[in-house]
Design a protein around this nucleic acid. Structure first.
Lengths: 335, 335
DNA sequence: CATTTTTGCTAAAAGGTTTTAATAGTGGTC
DNA sequence: GACCACTATTAAAACCTTTTAGCAAAAATG
């Protein structure tokens, strides 16, 4: 580990040229017709002295950093944290490391970070595109930087993405609620957001209602709304419309919903989008549409590496099914 | 963004040497007596063409990557995910980026990653040391690589660390339980682990019991124990000893405890270490010893950057207080 | 045996910065 | 007018690889 040893040191010690060693280390011995004898001698020596090439020099020369940029909305969100974990594991297995960051809903920071990571010459990007990033992503593509989006995508930009089947997840969850005859009025709580996952979740809800010819009750909350205001709005939504059941479009909204219940003691049957460690333990246990996090992460890395290795590869759109997990909150009313 | 522009291009366009431009860009214009006229001319031009230095070349030359390595036990654990978020924010503010990874309890992977990050010449490390990493961390220090540990530290290695005041957190939580006369028998559920945070939490529990001259009931669970086995053990522990209250040494153990309750309907008063989004919403709401995540993250980055900027700086040991958040689970028995 | 091909290896350029050491010019001093 | 000090700038080395282009010797070919 100490006194970094260079390829030139090895060359000197062995009385061979730097070029030869580089060829051997990069597996080009055969191709470059380096004799087996010398190849082995070098390999052995390299191992003995524990030489590790300087990544920076290597990257500077080859233009490859073996680093991927992971830009998520919020790494402290359980969904993203879990994805991040699996992405890291998959990448590690392929010799890639990850530079990460949370962008929040700060478009300026997001743009800057994409630029910064680009300047650092990451080999590819994994991004949850927040609103206002369309042009930056388009620019990356124009510069032939491999990109894969997830959780949501940008319709007007033709790039790789891996998303959950939000439509069907939502559709099935709503249908599940509709199947219970007690649930006459079923509401949907979502966010003011044009992101695809939100749109798809709403469409799924609508489709199910349409099949049963029922009225839709939809309440949208401002994205960074203060919690108590959001709570009041949800409470009012439920009260005023005398809802029997609610489908929450995100994990966080569902938690806010639970807080409403805690405070006002009033929550109808419900299903949440995205599972959460403690939903199972809640009283009653919360039914959820859960996303296949591991699959999503694996696909993300697979798609991105494919693009990195073959820049001509055609764009991939991967839709991963969701799983409806029926627990108590949707079968028995809360309290 | 396209057709990367180099410092030499600028030199040519402006009819100045590369050196001069580099000096100006690195704020050495005054020191090197570059005329103000030229300085401005260069600065303006650089801005106009949007030149960004190639980070790799820069790093290769200076040996500074402006990247920190973040090695945590498990990025999908809410505590670490939250810390990671704030670490990223603090680092970003100082112009640093983060290479992260989860090590699990895989010492081999951990060692390899530290080596790999070292090879990538990260400017410093933020690490939650898992068992078996003592020598690697010591080696980093011997090589003058800035390191700061968190969550726990390695007693035999004199390095920077930022940890919570686990002892007092645990002490106060136990004392809180002792103050309720109904709680005659108070147990402690922990892990088979020699890590400092575990030891301190146990010591705090002990100290409180000693003050009240009460018997200790301590159950340790194997670190990667299967959940159902852990559940059975906890159940048995509570049953056999007829415990009135339990302090759980970690978040996860507490959640396992809640699962025990869900399954066997039997859990005494409790306090958990580490807060969790849904603890507040649990029925009853779970009392916790919560850690000041934001403070810890900020201190980590502060201490590390300090060491990076001044390698001679003396070692810092920072202990951040915990907050006891009393909710229902410790004041009224569960069910 | 002269010529071509193959074998085994290497010198030097390239990648894009920062930094050391030096240079040419100007003004001042005795 | 010789010497020094200072100003404003720069050539070239250094950081450490990979890769292109090429060379000398040995083997194969006709």
């Amino acid at each position: 580990m100490s006194k970094r040893i260079l390829i030139s040191d090895i060359a000197k010690s062995l009385g061979v040229s730097v070029t030869t060693i580089s060829f051997i280390l990069n597996g080009k011995a055969k191709e470059k017709r380096i004799s087996d004898a010398l190849t082995n001698r070098v390999l052995e020596y390299v191992k003995k002295v524990g030489y590790k090439p300087n990544q920076l020099a290597q990257s500077l020369r080859t233009g490859q950093t073996k680093i991927l940029g992971l830009l998520v909305e919020d790494i402290s969100n359980l969904f993203f944290a879990n994805i991040a974990k699996h992405i890291e594991e998959s990448s590690y297995a392929s010799g890639y490391h990850l530079l990460y960051c949370s962008m929040g809903n700060d478009t300026v920071k997001a743009r800057e970070l994409i630029q910064l990571f680009y300047d650092r010459q990451v080999d590819g990007f994994i991004i949850t595109p927040t609103e206002g990033l369309e042009d930056v992503v388009a620019l990356l593509l124009k510069n032939n930087v491999p990109v894969v989006l997830f959780d949501r995508y940008i319709p007007q930009v033709e790039t790789n993405y891996v998303v959950s089947d939000n439509f069907n997840g939502s559709f099935r969850a709503t249908k599940h609620l509709l199947e219970n005859e007690d649930n006459r009025r079923i509401g949907f709580v979502s966010l003011y957001s044009d992101q695809t996952q939100m749109r798809d979740r709403m469409d799924g809800y609508m489709k199910a209602l349409d099949q049963y010819q029922r009225q839709a009750y939809i309440k949208k909350i401002q994205i960074d709304e203060q919690e108590d205001i959001a709570m009041a709005q949800i409470f009012e939504f439920i009260e005023d419309n005398k809802l029997d059941a609610v489908l929450f479009a995100t994990n966080y909204l569902a938690i806010t919903g639970l807080k409403v219940n805690k405070k006002y003691g009033k929550l109808p049957a419900m299903v949440a989008f995205d599972d959460h460690t403690l939903f199972k333990l809640h009283e009653p246990a919360i039914s959820v549409v859960s996303q296949r996090i591991e699959t999503i992460a694996e696909e993300l890395v697979k798609v991105l590496l494919r693009q990195i290795r073959n820049p001509q590869a055609d764009v991939k759109h991967i839709v991963v099914p969701c799983d409806l997990k029926i627990r108590d909150s949707s079968t028995a009313k809360i309290k």
